[in-house]
Design a protein around this nucleic acid. Sequence first.
DNA 1: GCGTAAGACTTACGATGTAAGAATCTTGGA
DNA 2: TCCAAGATTCTTACATCGTAAGTCTTACGC
Lengths: 225, 225
Amino acid sequence: MGTQAEPRKLLSRERVLRTAIKLADESGLGAVTMRRLAEELGAEAMSLYYHVSNKDDVFDGMAELIGQEINEAAAGVSTHDGGWKAAVRQRILTAREVLLLHPWMPSLLSIRNTASASIIAHHDAIVGLMHDGGLSYDLIHHGLHALGSRALGFAQELFDPGKGPVSDETISAMAAGLPNIAAMLAEVAHDDPASTLGWCDDQTEFEFGLDLILDGLHHRSSATS
Amino acid sequence: MGTQAEPRKLLSRERVLRTAIKLADESGLGAVTMRRLAEELGAEAMSLYYHVSNKDDVFDGMAELIGQEINEAAAGVSTHDGGWKAAVRQRILTAREVLLLHPWMPSLLSIRNTASASIIAHHDAIVGLMHDGGLSYDLIHHGLHALGSRALGFAQELFDPGKGPVSDETISAMAAGLPNIAAMLAEVAHDDPASTLGWCDDQTEFEFGLDLILDGLHHRSSATS
DNA sequence: GCGTAAGACTTACGATGTAAGAATCTTGGA
DNA sequence: TCCAAGATTCTTACATCGTAAGTCTTACGC
């Protein structure tokens, strides 16, 4: 009997948050406004406030859900028998894979530094792996600080010293004021543009830094015990 | 000739940026709005646009000035004779001291990841110190990535696992879902609340992470050469 | 039918960045 | 001294944002 209009799916906190994540995935965190979010849901902005207390609550909810995604992904990966270092490494790289699907997460976490339950749980798992490996809680504590955002799979890069191929002109132009960086760029010449998580945050570079820290922790653990 | 009204100091890009920094120091980055900034300068919001192209330009200018402050502070510190590691460490800790005076810098840098000239110069200096110390440019390049924001004196902390004294109730409350973190907190018990740069970013923790990375670079350098 | 409460909507306000153009002030040449 | 021509500042206005307050709609037990 004719068009029965759209089914008008009900709103819910879950649906709001999922839509917010989809919106951020597609158009960036800046596109997540209450009005745009409502539009995406076929509702009005103020209607969201019945399910969500305010925008920060939306942000926190998004982080919580991504944290769950990380934990689920990690649950599906067998705990290696290669020692705590391999296990922690694995967990963190798994987290990173999830974050690569949601590149806005780093920004979100820097805006809202409240700890969501699922992200704390992720850290709890890391602490557990380290402790099982024989590290003291004191060392683990220092280690968590040393890892910082790396525990979640990303590193804050301050700028992008070599996005794309560095032209020779660029190098000679900066050679005057920045002799050392110029020399480095001339020699290193980033060639793998397979980056993405924000800013020049290569998988290779990420793993290098991660291993540097894990090795350091391992060394300090062996030396002490 | 009575009161001659206020002298009405002239606006200038310099004055706008300095005032923005002062405002951020006093009331946080969120207080830096064009109107508030204008008010502070005894002018109208739109008048600023003659000296500054937009708000992002203000942010970039602030970062540039802080970068200069870092470089000036570093210039006043003698380059040690303790090898490249001590020299780099010194430079980074000096940068950190400046950042501690401007706790909003981390947030600013995460919002505007454009590279200001002075901050690039700071990195150039670090590259120089490392190269003088015999590190290969390739290793230096990796090292810079590994350092990330730490090169400027801060580390992104995701949340604050132990701000202030951790109450026993808190620990027993979380013991159920987070056995490992609970156990760690029970044992470690943060006791030095002399933190500040954002979130639980102790000087001690910062230096621990910094040394972990520098030691790792040193080790990888020795092994290769 | 009818109250009742959950859920969605309307309207409105203050804050923000900034476009467009008017007003004022400064300065140098006639 | 006067006046044209920048240089600088101000006025007004608009779009967008988060959200407070209150109203309408719908579903359902009686």
